[in-house]
Design a protein around this nucleic acid. Sequence first.
DNA 1: ACCATTTATGCTCATATTGAGTATAAGCCA
DNA 2: TGGCTTATACTCAATATGAGCATAAATGGT
Lengths: 328, 328
Amino acid sequence: MRAARPPFPGPGKFTPQTSGSHDIFVPDMTTQMMIELIAVLTAVRDDVPQVMTIDHGRLLPSGPLESTHRSLQAGVRAWVERQTGHPIGHVEQLYTFADHDRLLATGQGRLIAISYLALTRSHAGETGWRDWYDYFPWENSKSDAGRDCLAIIERLLCRWVADMDNAAMRVRQWQRCVSLFAIGDMVAWNDELVLQRYELLYEAGLVAEAGCTPEDAVPGQAMHHDHRRILATGMARLRAKIRYRPVVFELMPEEFTLLQLQRVMESLSGIHIHKQNFRRLIMQQQLVEETGGIEENTGGRPARLYRFCGEVRQARQFVGTKIPLFQP
Amino acid sequence: MRAARPPFPGPGKFTPQTSGSHDIFVPDMTTQMMIELIAVLTAVRDDVPQVMTIDHGRLLPSGPLESTHRSLQAGVRAWVERQTGHPIGHVEQLYTFADHDRLLATGQGRLIAISYLALTRSHAGETGWRDWYDYFPWENSKSDAGRDCLAIIERLLCRWVADMDNAAMRVRQWQRCVSLFAIGDMVAWNDELVLQRYELLYEAGLVAEAGCTPEDAVPGQAMHHDHRRILATGMARLRAKIRYRPVVFELMPEEFTLLQLQRVMESLSGIHIHKQNFRRLIMQQQLVEETGGIEENTGGRPARLYRFCGEVRQARQFVGTKIPLFQP
DNA sequence: ACCATTTATGCTCATATTGAGTATAAGCCA
DNA sequence: TGGCTTATACTCAATATGAGCATAAATGGT
């Protein structure tokens, strides 16, 4: 990924050109720092995007950065594998933040959380995997359940706005609701705004994490701390990324049909894709090549099998990808 | 910005739903952590993108996270304003990494650096501002100096590859050079790969930070530690972002002509834009509105003045922006 | 006054991309 | 066989995009 910091395999070792007081830091002993690493580990199973969790689906795999970790990424890998037994593939950093609401045991420490998005393929019969849309049912705008959930949200947001004192505020916040949740088809649904939608619901007090009672909350399972927010960040990043980088293939098996590929894209984005146009775009970009194999169990005419030919194209690196993700 | 974590102004306070041992952390006392905040503060002056520096252009504004900082962003703002006297506007997080090459004074500590991109408008006569392209002359592919620099780089990379033992490695690395620096017009120049190009030069030992002698280095001023790499990350982010979000306007004065806007886009991306098409796209997206004013000193026919009308459009938030940035 | 020069602005045109639909192929099952 | 499913090939209209032409309105020089 663009901002990744790989271990530098290059010839020269980094030699700081000392000049004064800039290269030695004196730690601030009054504050105890703690670094927590958190992973949004995602896979797709039976056309359903899933996330790895611990603690009965209430926490993302996470743990403190330890002195034995050679790097931040290594720390993430270590924690995920220790807690879930699942080795991970592609990893990229999401976001770093100071968690105001969790201090250290000493009471005056500071917790810094660094979150990562990780992608992986296989996970036959492992525990801990949960559907994305158990936590964010409204994001699955393709499904009936998603549409129902959106109808509920629309009503609740409407009430939230109506209860405001300030008229200008009412207008502004309703505008926000309309544009984020595509209420009344004034604006098209934007699948990438996962985090913004969650934040709006949080501000409106419609999620359990905001301290409301379960009856007042919107459908969707809550998580501990701000882990659902971090999951939202990961979902948003992945939805944005599959549009212009060939990351979907990290989630696909070695061989797949074009419809299988399309189904994965659709389930990740929660959006319908026009089948013929999808094939056209994938083919003309030469992202895949035929394996020669045939998938028989399609329920209809057998389909050709393809594989990602990124290894060849990795040479002329940093390929763009265009996926026809449009509105239903 | 999508991943930003604003202070939550919502009704409910975050109330963790305790369940076992997951909300209290016991700090790892064997490792001393230190958080450093680093800013890539960018402005545009006379159609030249600039970055705020300290220490005679050798360091980006930075400093440790202190217990008095209410948040990470607040810490960044505090350090930049303390070191440069310049208040900053738009801020977004870039990347977090563990700096292997700088340990704490104790010798066994760990330095975590969190970098930010910040944008600002005015800076009349302040010190510390340096041109982007003093550090990355090859990224200014629009200018003659940039083209000369690229010619030099091409020669040096060619020699670097030729000196390799392994034939397969030679092919692979030359492929990488060709695609990143658009050698021989096999591939189009991609203005967003600032970081990847810097990393390639680093691996090739062609930048001072990699420990080479000044004679062996490619043109362009070096910085201390990995600050030039962080600058590259910021440049890449900004170049990517101006294509789909209206962030350019953070760098523009209140009123501007369309040519001024185009010049800023061109200087940020280092790419030429077709004037008429640029106007067409900006106008049809209704990103700007006429102020009624006229700019007389154009050197030709006077030009209409415009202002960003994002405040209105902020309502239907998260507008996309398309800018016609293509190759020369 | 006339001209070259500069920038601003409006408009055309060929081509590429995209959304949507039609048509046919090839499997299954009753 | 007909009816269902999915696969795959093609067509067509609407847009979007890259490139250029033409005219407008300022400057300065002769």
